[in-house]
Nucleic acid binder design. Structure first.
Lengths: 177, 177
DNA sequence: CGGAGGTATATAACCTTTTATATACTTCTG
DNA sequence: CAGAAGTATATAAAAGGTTATATACCTCCG
């Protein structure tokens, strides 16, 4: 049940429409949250009915009229209460990483290619990572860097294994002669 | 849609009941997945109907009869296909970390106490972290260690800020004399 | 001027996950 | 022997999240 609170948090950085909120969430991965527009619109309505946000209609230069929301004092209070709740490190679900847990089931070649692909994507993310202006961004960057180091270590292990296997095959061939 | 595949993966480490699968998932955080029993039982039924697992009823020494499942060849194939899909680093949703993104909204004192609490929980997790027998476990451990270093850096920053603020207050007092 | 593409809101249908509740059998403890 | 606690399965209801689809207005390009 974070979405409403995250929206309140984003709104308290400045009034915004549902569309704006979606792009703010998508643009900033350090937020650790994202949602579809189809989820955002109903939540904004609920927040409006609850008095946590106020609505201002605004003609827009492009497209249909924008519905801009800003937080009310009640909304700010709700947000701050949420923010003050104790923080836990979590082990969130991750569809891709759960695959990682079974990596050893693949052949070394496939494992290597999976990890190389993963590495390339990590590097891309690191390039895009925002400078560490906030604690959350510094955290994100540090984690990405660690993950990169980890992939490299795994790739190294795999290449060593391969070299050993090759050496052994060589030795066998020598014996055969 | 990972749960069915994760269950197949766990089952291919050895036949198990729904109850066993739940405890395997909960015990191993490097899996990056967990689910409630109420979700596991229906999924196992679906897998059974689909021919991906086979059932063996077993009287149990304690409690009602166990329904033990094992993967079929079709299940193994399905699992390996899933495993071979390209891996992406992801930015999963995390209810707690999304709170972190707004940390700067709290007063420095509250921030410090939040981070100290977070730190204590991290240390606990690190203690429990399994030795790095698999790539996924090595990854998890590395990330936890990085997170710990990050919290310490943030706490250091905060204490410096506090010291500066104190010094300034001191200077003002001196001027007032 | 027709269509592609971006801005903007909205809803229905579907799937996944959580929470609540029920049942059954066993062992251990008071 | 009553009740708590652990093992085990099961289902219903609610909440949360994704995918698909519709509408509307604008600009730019051919």
């Amino acid at each position: 049940m974070s979405l409403p609170h995250v929206l309140l948090g984003l709104l308290s950085r400045g009034a915004a429409s549902g569309w704006d909120l979606k792009s703010r969430m998508t643009r900033d991965p350090s937020l650790a949250w994202d949602a579809e527009l189809s989820q955002i619109y109903p939540v904004l309505k609920r927040l409006l009915r609850g008095g946590f946000v106020a609505l201002k209609r605004r003609g827009s230069s492009k497209g249909p009229a924008r519905r801009e929301y800003r937080v009310t004092p009640a909304g700010r209070r709700e947000f701050l209460d949420w923010l003050a709740e104790p923080l836990h490190p979590s082990t969130p679900r991750d569809a891709h990483l759960s695959r990682l847990a079974f990596l050893e089931r693949l052949t070394p070649e496939r494992r290597t290619s999976q990890l190389k692909n993963f590495r390339a994507l990590l590097v891309e993310r690191l390039k895009k990572a925002n400078p560490g202006a906030t604690a959350a961004r510094r955290r994100r960057r540090a984690l990405l860097e660690t993950e990169l180091r980890w992939v490299d270590a795994e790739l190294l292990l795999l290449s060593k294994e391969e070299a050993e296997a090759a050496a052994e095959a060589d030795a066998q061939r020598q014996l055969g002669l």
